[in-house]
Design a protein around this nucleic acid. Structure first.
Lengths: 110, 110
DNA sequence: TATTAACAGCCTATTAATAGGCTCTAGATA
DNA sequence: TATCTAGAGCCTATTAATAGGCTGTTAATA
């Protein structure tokens, strides 16, 4: 499936549906999942409809034994040789902005 | 890295750091990302510190061109043969609960 | 097929995320 | 190394998520 063809709302719905499928595959009730995660039943319902906080997602994935998937989600990045060259091996802590011209070196207009 | 060895808070921090790394690899500023996603600067900051909503994560991943990774995140599940047998091919819409004994079939106490 | 528990959907109160603003620090650059 | 801007950190107001509770519907089971 190409996620880029979905709206953000559509992606959220898809995520919720997959988490629900994960839960049902293990034959776990929403109530049992709520108790195991110490979250409320409403939060489990919300998550399965695609809403909620990151912390909720993580707690539920842990309980369902699906945390490994986070690794492929946002992988630790390997730096490409091209970028290594650009950055001279240093890693960037800030993005570089467009710097305004240094006006102190301008010739006065008059 | 084994995410199960991390606390939920730790995982959130790791996620935020990876998103930040993704952004910096593209040399995009937080302000530019905020504008592109029509989210506030504070929300971008929060996300990179591991907090926020699922909708925020999705919007940012889309902007950074990292949405494909969601597919490996929560994969569409393939049903195992064992489960197919148990479910007789039907897919479960609810988890099965422990059903209390049907008292109508009990012998009266007196 | 009758039963019953899983779940959706709704409500109210509380807590956390978000928007928008400001100041201060320090990383990247000229 | 001096400059400039990316980003942290803090503030206030608004909006969304969460906790807890209740009712009605129906999938799964006996």
């Amino acid at each position: 499936m190409d996620l880029y063809s979905l709206s953000d709302r559509g992606i959220q719905a898809e995520l919720g549906a997959r988490i629900r499928a994960l839960r049902l595959r293990k034959n776990v009730t929403q109530i049992a999942l709520a108790e195991a995660t110490t979250l409320s039943l409403n939060v489990i319902k919300s998550l399965e409809s695609g809403r909620g906080k990151l912390s909720t997602l993580i707690a539920v994935l842990r309980e369902l034994g699906a945390l490994e998937q986070l690794n492929s989600f946002i992988p630790e990045l390997s730096i490409s040789p091209l970028q290594l060259a650009r950055m001279q091996g240093r890693h960037r802590e800030r993005a570089s902005g467009k710097r305004l011209k240094d006006k102190s070196k301008d010739r006065p207009e008059w």
